[in-house]
Design a protein around this nucleic acid. Structure first.
Length: 667
RNA sequence: GCGCCCGUGGCGCAACUGGAUAGCGCAUCGGUCUUCGGAACCGAGGGUUGUAGGUUCGAAUCCUACCGGGCGUGCCA
């Protein structure tokens, strides 16, 4: 944090971290008086209710026991010790001992001028940790789907924010490029590739092959199980009936009923899945023919994978041929999403290192044999982490350990973030525990987990036919809906934008459509599941990217129409006129931009930045509704409002940029 | 069975990690324009925070039990 000397005007300080500055003042006041000043000073926060001022300090109440005084008295003494009048009005004490702070207009003007003058909006970049962020990580040769959105977009946003704050960020895409899907494609390619189609569009042909193999394997696995599954449903239903007929006073009745209901539900679910797989192939004569001619396709495909992993030259050759094709397809998606990586070291990259990892752990006595497998036993876990299977093959966990070794050696990171869905939380707990055991103790290892993307029915997002929906298709869809919403002729005419070229409309639709998808994801608390509702996310109303982008466009529209130009680089505190409460509220939010960024990376929640930006956009709407800019009563007021408008636009644009979302000057 | 996560107005989500009268967005209803773009703004209704206890000055948040849901659970990733 920047050092504040008494003599230096605060306006000279870039990256002052407002909240942290206020806390610092409290910490100083608490020094030598209470046990742990820093902890107590941390209880200063932005006021939850604006009637209580701008910031509140809930420090006095918890100190009641330590100091043995009534909280109100403590609050009074704390205020007496506090040196903060250059920032806010004399603090007020309320209720049981809350201390409420209201920033002075002079201070607000000062800070706004600082934000307006600085090309980085007064966000400091003194942070200097090295982060490795592991995100996106799709499986090569399988189509990307909604599930990949979250990791990709959250990881990208974190990388952008951390970088902006000055950290060194290594964005690493840990591709699944060595998995069983290659055996499937290799087998499929040999037996039912259409060579003409492959020559013309290899990407499409490979994904066609993959889908065929997947469907047939699914069918062959499901078909023999179907009748058993049907029986299970019947049995579950019978069981339920039996339980239902139990006497009402049976103490176990409720419990049994619940279990029976659950069983019926899960049996039905399982039966439906199997039936769908069977129907998919039976309904398609071509697929049915393949299923007939290639019995036990899964085993055959697996055999190809084993050959590949064993270094079979032909399969290796095919793998080398297919890999760039699949990666090109994935890259096309990243291109559209404007997501970029520093490294794409897939699983295959670490293959040569795996045997060494296992050997070393055995030598160090950290791993041992159990049931033929090599395991690392960890405190607090029933099941061990298996790093080599009985058949000698390595696992995900092995690769992850090798990856940690590699990253530690080559990047010396202070932190490693894994942006991976919550179902793998136990895997990461084990992995991190093992890493510490190995000796990586000084590094922050974090699983940035996230919830599931659900369809409108509240179940994991699928099409009606049960297929996962391709990501490329979803992006197209979002752009198309955005076009309909934003570029419909009626709306354009009302807004006086009939002159808009097709190219510009297209540009707007892309910006709004992709922004909508990213924002919908980022604005939700990452640990929750969320519903993927494309119609809702492209709306201009509500908590959407389009609303924020729209408010940005409105700010630019005002600036365009102004005949007066204000040079914000020369803006001084005295130039900022805070006449209406709406002006003051907006300025207060503007100077909190840096704090919003810091807060969003504290526990890696991009949703906090999204919430800040939405709040800012709303406040801007309120501002320009109540405070006319171009017809302001005086020129000084107009210049002040233009500067506020200009700065708001910049903060919105920069903030969205850090979420990976673009803006347009009109829409 | 065991482990982890989650239950907040009709719907979707917040609540700065124990603070003040639980906020916001959809949806509903009612207002505001001859001025910067009305897909805007202002306002209203709607809640015993799953249930029952407990901890303390103070609980959506912490503890216990129960109800309901999701996920994981020794050789997939």
């Amino acid at each position: 944090m920047a050092i504040l000397s008494e003599s230096a005007p605060l306006s000279a300080v870039i990256g002052m971290q407002l909240l942290s500055t206020i806390r610092q003042r409290f910490e100083t006041a608490l020094q030598g008086w209470v046990e742990d000043p820093a902890t107590h000073a941390a209880r200063v926060s932005i006021a939850r209710d604006r009637r209580h001022g701008d910031y509140q300090a809930n420090i006095a109440m918890p100190l009641k026991n330590e100091l043995g005084q009534p909280p109100q008295q403590i609050a009074q003494q704390l205020v007496d010790r506090l040196s903060i009048l250059d920032v806010c009005h004399p603090p007020e004490i309320a209720g049981p001992g809350f201390i409420n702070l209201k920033l002075t207009d002079a201070f607000l003007g000062d800070r706004l001028a600082c934000v307006a003058r600085d090309e980085r909006l007064s966000v400091g970049q003194s942070a200097s940790k090295t982060y490795v962020i592991d995100y996106s990580a799709p499986n090569v040769a399988k189509p990307m789907h909604v599930g990949h959105i979250r990791s990709t977009v959250i990881g990208d946003a974190l990388a952008r924010i951390l970088r902006f704050l000055g950290h060194r960020v290594i964005a690493d895409n840990h591709l699944g490029d060595w998995g069983t899907q290659f055996g499937m494609i290799i087998y499929g390619y040999r037996h039912f590739a259409d060579s003409a189609a492959y020559a013309q569009d290899p990407v499409a042909e490979l994904s066609r092959i993959y889908r065929i193999v997947q469907a047939v394997i699914g069918y062959q696995a499901a078909e023999p199980k179907l009748s058993a599954a049907q029986r299970r449903v019947e049995q579950a239903r019978e069981k339920l009936q039996t339980v239902e007929s139990l006497a009402d006073d049976d103490p176990q009745r409720k419990k049994k009923l619940k279990a029976a209901n659950k069983e019926v539900k899960s049996a039905q679910e399982a039966e439906r899945t199997l039936a769908e797989r069977v129907a998919a192939v039976q309904a398609d004569p071509a697929l049915a023919g393949i299923a007939d001619k290639h019995p036990e396709l899964e085993k055959r495909a697996q055999a190809e994978t084993v050959k590949l992993h064993a270094g079979d030259p032909e399969n290796l050759e095919l793998w080398k041929q297919f890999l760039p094709i699949s990666i090109a397809e994935i890259d096309a998606i990243y291109q559209r999403l404007d997501v970029h990586f520093d490294y794409t070291y897939g699983e295959s990259f670490y293959q040569p290192l795996l045997a060494g990892v296992v050997e070393r752990l055995l030598e160090q006595g950290l791993a041992e044999e159990s049931d033929g497998a090599i395991c690392v036993f960890l405190d607090g876990f029933d099941a061990p982490m298996i790093i080599r299977k009985r058949d000698g093959a390595f696992l995900y966990a092995t690769t992850d350990l090798a990856t940690i070794d590699y990253r530690m050696e080559h990047f010396q990171p202070d932190a490693m973030l894994y942006v991976v869905d919550h179902r793998q939380s136990e895997h990461f707990e084990k992995l991190f525990s093992a890493a510490r055991k190995i000796g990586y103790e000084d590094i922050e290892l974090r699983h940035i987990s996230f919830g599931t993307v659900l369809g409108p029915d509240g179940k994991p997002f699928k099409t009606r036919s049960g297929d996962v929906v391709g990501l490329g298709y979803l992006l197209d869809e979002a752009v198309e809906r955005a076009f309909q919403v934003v570029c419909n002729p009626e709306r354009l005419e009302r807004a006086g934008m009939q002159d808009m070229s097709d190219q510009e409309k297209r540009q707007i639709a892309v910006t709004v459509g992709l922004g909508a998808i990213k924002y919908a994801d980022l604005s939700h608390n990452r640990t929750s599941d969320y519903k993927f509702d494309i119609d809702e996310m492209v709306q201009l109303e509500g908590d959407t990217a389009a609303y924020i982008q729209y408010m940005y466009a409105r700010s630019q529209s005002i600036l365009r129409k102004s005949t007066v130009t204000v040079d914000c680089q020369q803006l001084q505190a005295e130039d900022v006129v805070l006449q209406a409460p709406e002006e003051r509220d907006l300025v207060l939010q503007l100077i909190q931009f840096e704090d919003a960024l810091l807060q969003s990376v504290e526990d890696y929640y991009p949703s906090l930045l999204a919430a800040y930006l939405f709040g800012l956009a709303r406040q801007f709407a309120t501002f320009f509704e109540h405070c006319h800019v171009l017809n302001a009563e005086s020129e000084s007021l107009q210049r002040s409002r233009l500067a506020i408008c200009h700065t708001t636009g910049r903060v919105l644009r920069q903030g969205l940029k850090l979420l990976g979302i673009d803006v347009v000057d009109r829409m």
